[in-house]
Amino acid sequence: MLWWREQVGDGLWVAFTDKAAGNLALHVGDVPASVQDRRRSLETELGMVPGSLRFMNQVHSANVGVASTGQPAPPPETEIDALVSPQADVPLAVMVADCLPVVFAGSTADGGHASAVAHAGRRGLLDGVLVNTVSELRASGVSDIRAWIGPSICGRCYEVPAHMRTASCEQLPQLYSETSWGTPALDLPAGAAGQLETLDVETRRLNGCTLEDSRLFSYRRNPQTGRFAGLVWREL
């Protein structure tokens, strides 16, 4: 069910699911009741309040929302690709199937924790979704921010047209890559790690290429695929 998990604070966990947890997305043609059942099973397994895990309407934007028990949740149709929980009091999820799932944790002034998740494909990464997420965390008074970059398509597999690689690398040089068969490519994890390092965010990259590993969902391998998730939550 979990590709990887780690306790990163007092009761605070980060994790990434795999295919064993099943498809967690409602927008890929799956039976909605089955998706909801999988989400509830995941919440129960990980010690969350059933129905509390917050998902996003992801559209490859750089928009950031705020999730807190003290304020209304963004409407489900709100188009955002990152969520910040300034007190880490709302469990958060980001869904992917080749793009980067990035999970954040940080310290608050009162000795507590903050959390965030972000969905970073090529467009979102270049448009600043990670930069905006870090900015929102810091605007909330969060320090000592850490980030975990979960499994995604790797730089050896993410083939793109030469003109796209050139334009992307002009903005973020760390993206430059070639496929294992010698064609232009982009290395999204390297680009994200480089960008986060310039923001003084301690970053950990996890192993796993979605295209190469059948235990993970991959849109490039199968456009009809499901979505796995990056998670951050406080255990009950």
Rank of each mutant, 00 (worst) to 15 (best):
W4T: 06
D10F: 08
D10W: 02
V14K: 01
A15D: 01
T17P: 01
K19V: 06
A20C: 07
A20M: 05
A21H: 07
L24N: 10
L24H: 08
D30K: 02
V31E: 14
V35I: 13
V35E: 00
R39L: 15
L42R: 01
E43A: 02
E43P: 02
T44Q: 14
E45A: 12
L46H: 05
P50H: 04
L53N: 13
F55E: 13
N57F: 08
N57K: 06
V59R: 15
N63Q: 14
V64H: 05
G65L: 03
A67C: 09
S68D: 08
T69C: 12
T69Q: 11
Q71E: 12
A73Q: 13
T78D: 06
D81F: 07
P86M: 13
V90W: 00
P91H: 03
P91V: 05
M95F: 13
L100I: 00
V102R: 00
V102W: 00
V103T: 11
V103W: 08
V103L: 13
V103Y: 06
F104T: 07
A105D: 04
G106W: 02
S107F: 03
D110C: 04
G111Y: 03
V117S: 00
A118F: 03
H119W: 03
A120T: 10
G121C: 11
G124R: 03
L125P: 06
D127E: 15
D127T: 15
G128T: 09
N132G: 01
E136A: 15
E136G: 07
E136D: 12
L137Q: 05
R138N: 02
G141T: 09
V142K: 02
S143K: 12
R146T: 15
C154S: 14
C157I: 07
Y158V: 10
P161M: 09
M164Q: 15
R165S: 11
A167Q: 13
A167H: 07
P173V: 05
P173G: 00
L175K: 01
S177Q: 09
S177N: 06
T179A: 09
T179M: 11
P184S: 05
A185P: 09
D187K: 10
D187M: 08
A190W: 03
G191M: 11
G191T: 10
A192Q: 03
G194E: 04
T198S: 14
T198P: 10
V201P: 00
V201G: 11
R204Q: 15
R204H: 12
R204G: 12
L206C: 01
L206V: 07
G208T: 11
R215M: 14
L216A: 01
F217T: 11
F217C: 07
R220S: 14
N222T: 13
P223F: 10
Q224L: 15
R227C: 14
F228E: 04
L231Q: 09
W233A: 10
E235R: 14
L236D: 14
L236E: 14
L236H: 15
